[in-house]
């Protein structure tokens, strides 16, 4: 059924991704590829993997951006230019257009937890869902002739054969910077809900009104870290350090 769930789903499972701490190491993307090429969406094929025209299906891709280019922040006139690494995957939107356009019912949103999935046994590979997603979260498998997307690791998060601490999406487990968090956004006490409130978590392309579940935590303002200020006004408190400072400043 490609009509969206009529009532709000009791759980809204999704990710919080911290753009402040993500270091752009691609561990989440690699670990996603590794898990999913053997899991629900197996395989995630590569064409010409060792040749000149490498191509393949990835459900998570990490883009690097420069930001803070022209703005003055922190009150001291310093430019806040910095790098932001941005991992991009399905946001499990509430008003998911990829689901409603699907002619077969292969794309659907689960009524219990809001996860958006593709049933590969039904998909005819018309690609319309990938056109409908503004975030580029769906990639076509040219070998299987069907569409692939992030499953929120449905075969991990409910998997009783795994240790409880491993029942999270592979990307969350792999992140060495702890920039990725998984949980239920309907539970105000969950880590993802709290982080979203504390850090002002944002939606992607809010102007489209698709109500994506995943939230991104914006980079912290430089003033809040004090990094710029510390370099400028070293305290002159007298004593040994002050003496060294005077000697070196001569």
């Amino acid at each position: 059924m490609t009509s969206l769930p009529k009532v709000p789903t009791p759980k809204r499972l999704g990710l919080v991704i911290d753009l402040d701490t993500c270091v752009g190491c691609h561990a989440c993307a690699v670990s996603c590829k590794e898990w999913n090429t053997a899991g629900y969406h197996a395989p995630l094929p590569d064409t010409d993997p060792y040749g000149k025209d490498v191509d393949g299906v990835w459900l998570n891709r990490v883009h690097g951006f420069e930001t803070g280019l022209d703005s003055k922040t922190g009150g001291d006139g310093e430019k806040a230019g910095r790098t932001v690494y941005f991992p991009r995957s399905c946001l499990h939107c509430e008003d998911a257009p990829c689901v409603t356009v699907c002619p077969t019912g292969a794309s659907y949103k689960r009524t219990e937890d809001g996860i958006v999935l593709v049933d590969e046994d039904i998909c005819i590979g018309c690609k319309l869902c990938s056109w409908a997603c503004p975030y580029g979260a769906r990639e076509f498998d040219t070998d299987g002739g069907v569409m692939k997307k992030c499953t929120l690791c449905i075969d991990r998060i409910y998997n009783d054969n795994l240790e409880p601490e491993d029942r999270q999406p592979a990307c969350v487990n792999a992140c060495p910077a702890r920039a990725r968090h998984f949980g239920d956004f309907n539970d105000p006490e969950s880590a993802v809900s709290k982080l979203t409130v504390e850090r002002g978590g944002v939606e992607l392309m809010p102007e489209l009104g698709l109500k994506p579940t995943n939230r991104y935590l914006p980079p912290r303002q430089p003033a809040a870290t004090g990094a710029v200020g510390r370099l400028d006004d070293a305290p002159t408190s007298g004593g040994f350090l002050d003496w060294i400072d005077r000697v070196l400043s001569r």
């Binding site: 420069e66 803070g68 703005s71 944002v202 939606e203 980079p219």
Partner: peptide, 19 residues
Amino acid sequence: AIGLGEVPGFDQVRPLDPP
């Protein structure tokens, strides 16, 4: 597109490393 359209100080972005 990366969620920073309304975030003061970071609302100008340009691509650096492609994935």
